[in-house]
Simulated assay, not measured.
Amino acid sequence: MDRLPAVAVSACLAGERCTYKASSNLIEGYGELAVLCRPVLVCPEVMGGLATPRDPAEIQGNKVVSCRGTDVTCEYERGAAEALRLAQEAGCAFALLKENSPSCGCGHVYDGTFSHTLVEGDGITARAFKREGIATFGESQIDALIEAIHAERL
């Protein structure tokens, strides 16, 4: 059997308790994905030096700011760089990322007002992955990711 493809996965989607609330976002279908690939678990926020739990943060212009007004851009950028390094080192062509996150959100993120309003855009890590050619999928797109993995293996 040929080697399973590596896929970068937001650690919270795999059941790690690393969200800002110190909970997980384990998704249905992760088990199926995990047997089709070699998951490379990443939590850019933690990898960037932020604690768990931590204050929620949102993108405001070119910065990432916590709900208390603390600029955490450096931590998000550091975590994105580390997550990208690990993904590239493992040879990831795909990533499954936590939707709406200021780090991992792909397609939509919160608007920076802490009003639960979504706008089009990508989180810091999703941007880095896309810039380097890693195809990103949000958790609601797990079936499309599984199809893409099957298609690549043909």
Results as ranks from 00 to 15, higher is better:
residue 102 P to G: 07
residue 8 A to I: 00
residue 123 G to A: 07
residue 97 L to H: 00
residue 140 S to V: 09
residue 31 G to L: 13
residue 143 D to P: 02
residue 22 A to W: 12
residue 17 R to H: 10
residue 93 A to I: 06
residue 60 Q to D: 07
residue 131 R to K: 13
residue 81 A to T: 01
residue 86 L to Y: 01
residue 20 Y to P: 03
residue 8 A to L: 01
residue 138 G to W: 01
residue 90 A to R: 01
residue 13 L to K: 03
residue 86 L to K: 04
residue 88 Q to A: 11
residue 134 I to T: 03
residue 83 A to S: 13
residue 126 A to Q: 06
residue 77 E to P: 03
residue 26 L to T: 06
residue 44 P to V: 05
residue 141 Q to R: 15
residue 63 K to S: 05
residue 154 L to T: 11
residue 31 G to M: 10
residue 67 C to A: 12
residue 14 A to Y: 02
residue 30 Y to V: 08
residue 60 Q to P: 04
residue 152 E to F: 12
residue 65 V to F: 09
residue 138 G to K: 02
residue 83 A to H: 02
residue 98 K to T: 02
residue 111 D to P: 07
residue 118 L to H: 03
residue 149 I to A: 06
residue 21 K to F: 12
residue 27 I to E: 04
residue 60 Q to K: 15
residue 63 K to H: 07
residue 3 R to E: 07
residue 134 I to V: 10
residue 104 C to V: 01
residue 128 A to Y: 04
residue 24 S to C: 13
residue 107 G to N: 04
residue 151 A to F: 14
residue 143 D to H: 14
residue 108 H to W: 11
residue 108 H to V: 08
residue 106 C to K: 06
residue 111 D to Q: 12
residue 3 R to D: 08
residue 99 E to L: 08
residue 10 S to W: 03
residue 84 L to D: 04
residue 133 G to H: 11
residue 125 T to K: 03
residue 36 L to T: 05
residue 116 H to T: 05
residue 47 M to I: 02
residue 36 L to S: 11
residue 25 N to V: 04
residue 3 R to L: 13
residue 148 A to I: 14
residue 97 L to K: 01
residue 112 G to C: 11
residue 21 K to G: 03
residue 15 G to S: 07
residue 88 Q to D: 10
residue 117 T to I: 14
residue 22 A to Q: 10
residue 83 A to F: 02
residue 126 A to W: 05
residue 5 P to C: 15
residue 50 L to V: 10
residue 92 C to T: 04
residue 4 L to F: 12
residue 39 P to L: 09
residue 5 P to T: 06
residue 98 K to G: 01
residue 69 G to K: 14
residue 104 C to K: 00
residue 63 K to E: 08
residue 84 L to G: 00
residue 49 G to M: 12
residue 139 E to W: 04
residue 17 R to G: 03
residue 99 E to K: 07
residue 147 E to Q: 15
residue 74 C to W: 09
residue 143 D to I: 12
residue 123 G to W: 00
residue 30 Y to F: 15
residue 40 V to G: 00
residue 70 T to C: 13
residue 1 M to R: 11
residue 111 D to W: 12
residue 6 A to L: 06
residue 95 A to E: 03
residue 148 A to P: 07
residue 104 C to W: 00
residue 66 S to G: 15
residue 42 V to T: 07
residue 82 E to R: 08
residue 47 M to K: 00
residue 154 L to F: 12
residue 42 V to N: 03
residue 131 R to S: 12
residue 149 I to W: 11
residue 51 A to L: 15
residue 36 L to N: 08
residue 152 E to Q: 15
residue 47 M to H: 01
residue 131 R to L: 11
residue 32 E to K: 14
residue 148 A to K: 15
residue 108 H to R: 14
residue 133 G to F: 10
residue 41 L to P: 00
residue 120 E to I: 12
residue 153 R to Y: 09
residue 56 P to W: 12
residue 151 A to P: 07
